[in-house]
Structures are given as structure tokens and as C-alpha cells.
């Protein structure tokens, strides 16, 4: 079997891509309702990769050592990021937690015990 040179092949593939590019269908990705939003407690890129570790750490501090009121907390996430439509971080694939977790097929166990609604909603305060 005669092989054409590697670079020719790569060149042709690049050309094919350039031609196929405009025809390509939109790539699906999570479109999130970030709720109230605002400035996050840390860099959003850092939070995206590490929120699960921070929550687990906070759980240990709170449950084992009784430390409350730290920088990171699950209730804090929910307070800012619950949707203004259904007052929750869950419910639809646009909701803040559910959107990415469904996309990446990562199960969220948090809300089997914890509330997915902001504290002010639970306290009966009017929601903005």
C-alpha cells in the first residue's frame, strides 16, 4: 500500500474541515440561568473545576469541627444561583446545577438532603 506523505494528508484534512465548517450544526452545550449571579466567592474558572472539592471540605469542617460561616458553602451557591423563575438550582436543564450535571452525566447527591432553594425563600422573605 502506497502512503501519501503525512503532511499532504493533514493538509487535505484541514481543507476538508474548512469546507465542512460552515455546514456544521451548532454544538450543544449547557445554557445556564445563573439566577441573581454577581461576583462569585472565587474565580469562576476555579469554581467550575473545584466546587465539588470545596463543598466536601466545607462539609467536613462544618460537621466534624462545627465551623460555620466559611467562604464556601452550598447554601451560598444556592442563594445567588437559584433561578428567578422557579427559585431553585434544579428543575430544568437551564437551572444552574442541573444544566451542567445532566450534560456531563454527573449525579448530584447534595439535594437529596439539602435544599435547592435559597435561604430567603425558606424564611418566607419575598424573592427579588
Amino acid at each position: 500500500m502506497r502512503m501519501q506523505s503525512g503532511w499532504t494528508l493533514i493538509g487535505r484534512m484541514a481543507l476538508l474541515l474548512a469546507l465542512a465548517g460552515p455546514l456544521a450544526a451548532a454544538v450543544s452545550e449547557p445554557v445556564l440561568d445563573i439566577g441573581q449571579g454577581g461576583k462569585c466567592v472565587d474565580d469562576p474558572r476555579f469554581m467550575r473545576l473545584n466546587h465539588m472539592k470545596l463543598m466536601r471540605h466545607q462539609r467536613d469542617e462544618t460537621v466534624h469541627q462545627g465551623i460555620r460561616g466559611g467562604k464556601y458553602s452550598l447554601a451560598g451557591c444556592v442563594d445567588c444561583h437559584a433561578s428567578k423563575k422557579n427559585h431553585s438550582v434544579l428543575g430544568t436543564d437551564q437551572n444552574f446545577c442541573q444544566g451542567c450535571h445532566v450534560y456531563a452525566a454527573v449525579k448530584i447527591d447534595c439535594f437529596e438532603c439539602h435544599s435547592s432553594e435559597p435561604r430567603r425563600a425558606l424564611a418566607g422573605e419575598p424573592l427579588k
Partner: peptide
């Protein structure tokens, strides 16, 4: 250890399947 951004990885490969560079 160090999680990559799996959402972006998925967007890359869904795009790759459809000849759309991500």
C-alpha cells in the same frame, strides 16, 4: 487529582463529531 473542564471537553468532542472546531 486535577479535574479538567469536562463540560468543555464534551463540547470539543461533540463538535469534533460534527466537523466543528471547538
Amino acid at each position: 487529582g486535577a479535574h479538567p473542564d469536562v463540560i468543555a471537553v464534551k463540547r470539543f468532542f461533540l463538535g469534533w463529531l460534527r466537523f466543528s472546531l471547538q
